[in-house]
Amino acid sequence: MALPALSLSLQFGRFKGVERHRAALPRHSVARWIRHALDSDGEITVRIVDAEEGQRLNREFRGKDYATNVLTFDYAQSPVVMADLVLCAPVVAREAREQRKTLAAHYAHLLVHGTLHAQGWDHETSDEDAEAMEAREIEILGGLGIKNPY
């Protein structure tokens, strides 16, 4: 089965330790992770930011005054998925340490998670929706050789 096509823009902000995050996110891996989560072709920008930018975006767009791991800005779901995924490097690194995962595995999970959000999946609407989204993430990550993130 052919995977959906993806037009990917991968961007890194300027922050201390950005080299570690670049190393965990080679373009071919990011594209592979996202393409496995897409149900149709996509045009997606992935931006890796510091805590200040992450907090500002979360505050401005979600009304929550803290930096979160991933923010999804979806613009279209059909016929082409168009979205921006913003990941906050310090939060992702901290969570990876706490969860005893590699940085790359945690980024893979969050990119799959954000890509599902961009296609309308939502874990905050009900317990059933949360369970369905988690099951889909586990399935996708398993197909990529990444163990259950939960």
Rank of each mutant, 00 (worst) to 15 (best):
D39E: 10
P26V: 08
R59I: 01
G63L: 06
V30S: 00
R59M: 09
E43W: 04
A5G: 11
H106S: 03
V86Q: 03
Y107E: 05
L144Y: 04
N58I: 07
A105E: 10
A96T: 12
G17A: 06
D127H: 07
A76W: 12
T72N: 13
L111H: 05
H117L: 06
E124V: 03
G145R: 04
P149F: 01
T115P: 06
L25K: 02
F12P: 01
D65G: 09
S7I: 08
A23S: 11
S126W: 04
T45M: 14
R97T: 13
H113A: 06
V112E: 03
V112F: 02
N69Q: 12
A83Q: 14
S40C: 13
Y75L: 12
E124H: 15
L110A: 11
A51C: 01
T72C: 15
N69M: 09
D41L: 08
I48R: 00
E98W: 03
I146L: 00
A135P: 01
P79W: 05
R32N: 09
L57R: 15
D39I: 12
R35F: 02
A130L: 13
R14M: 06
G145F: 04
I48D: 03
A31V: 04
K101G: 00
A130R: 13
Q99D: 08
P79I: 06
D129H: 15
L71R: 10
L8Y: 13
H123F: 12
A67Q: 10
V112C: 10
E139M: 08
E131I: 03
D50Q: 10
A96I: 07
A105Q: 11
I34K: 01
L103K: 11
F12S: 07
G17P: 12
M1R: 12
G143C: 11
I34A: 00
L111M: 14
L144K: 03
Q11G: 14
A67Y: 02
H123Y: 15
E43G: 01
R14F: 07
H113C: 01
I48A: 03
D41W: 05
A132E: 08
E98L: 10
L38K: 01
G143I: 11
E95Y: 09
A132Y: 01
N69H: 05
E43K: 15
E131S: 07
R62N: 11
A104S: 14
P149S: 03
L141Q: 05
Y75D: 07
A132I: 02
V81F: 00
L144E: 02
R22S: 04
V46W: 02
Y107H: 10
E131P: 00
D65K: 05
M82S: 11
F61H: 12
R27P: 04
A23I: 12
R94P: 00
F61D: 13
V70W: 00
L25M: 14
A96W: 02
F15K: 01
I34C: 02
N58E: 11
N69F: 00
N58V: 07
D39M: 04
C88W: 05
G42N: 14
R22F: 06
V86I: 15
L110G: 00
A118D: 06
R14N: 13
H106N: 14
E137V: 12
V49H: 01
D65N: 15
D65M: 10
E95C: 02
Y107R: 06
N148L: 05
A105H: 11
H36Y: 07
L110K: 00
I44L: 03
G42D: 08
T115D: 10
V112Q: 04
R47S: 14
D41N: 14
P79E: 03
R32K: 15
